[in-house]
Amino acid sequence: MIPAQFDYVRPAAMHEALQILVDREGDAKILAGGYSLLPLLKLRLASPALLVDIRDIDGLDEIVETTDGLRIGSRSTHRSILENPVVVAGYPLLSDAAGGIGDPQVRNWGTIGGSCAHADPSSDWPAVLIATSASIVLRSTAGERTVPARSFFLDTFQTAIEPTELLTEVIIPRAPRPSGAAYAKLERRAGDFSTVGVAAQLSLGADGRIAAAGIGLTAVAEAPFAATAAEASLIGSEPNEAAFQAAGIAAAAESRPGSDSHGPAEYKRAMVKEMVVRALRSAAGRAQAQR
């Protein structure tokens, strides 16, 4: 539990940080809250030569609602998202997810950007961003680009971020009304990594049928992913138990869980079905409330 030696810099401005990433390409690792990175260092599973602490860079921890949707700065902590008035008023999926991450200390330090950049398949934010078809904004000395969350998470601990890029914000589009979203997390005890996590978002058409559906799954494949067959199965259906069960079965079939201390693959696949149904029930209830 003692890390190997590393250097540490704390740039005062964005351009400095981005230049360091260029100058020390491959050697440098961004440090935000540290709640994913520091355990890796202490277990000596990662030994970067340089940590670039971004805590002094202005503008990375803002949460603002624009016409595009909700823009969340990458250094926003889980707690700041959980307690943000805009989130509390209008984004219950984010509240569900943020409130279930770790314990208060983790939520005080861990950040949404760090969680996404680290890309642990068991962490909760990626599925939320997938279900809501969010975008992830990356910046480098060459400029800025936006990557859809659905093509950002490539594999376990692997994302579309280039070594010279910094994740600056995520943008969650505003869903058309009436819509509802929820996160259903199966955990062994409070604050644990998910055994299975399901983020679901439903939008209802004028006829009351499901017009759009997003389902992101946590911890049941090498990376978080969109359960596209389950999503497709819901479109045009009444938001009822039969539709949720069918979506659950489809999502279970799309999952590729491994067996580990959380349980055997068979159990996890069954839990995907169960938690998809629970997430959809809750999302549909919230959507109905907007009608």
Binding site: R188, R189, A190, G191, S261
Partner: peptide, 28 residues
């Protein structure tokens, strides 16, 4: 309900950190 130190057939401890050796919290 939670705690167990188990080993695989190669004798690897499967609960060698608090990620897998589950102490219950005040919540449960």
């Amino acid at each position: 309900l939670y705690e167990e130190i188990s080993y695989d057939e190669l004798g690897n401890n499967l609960a060698g950190t608090f990620m897998d050796y589950l102490l219950p919290t005040a919540v449960e």
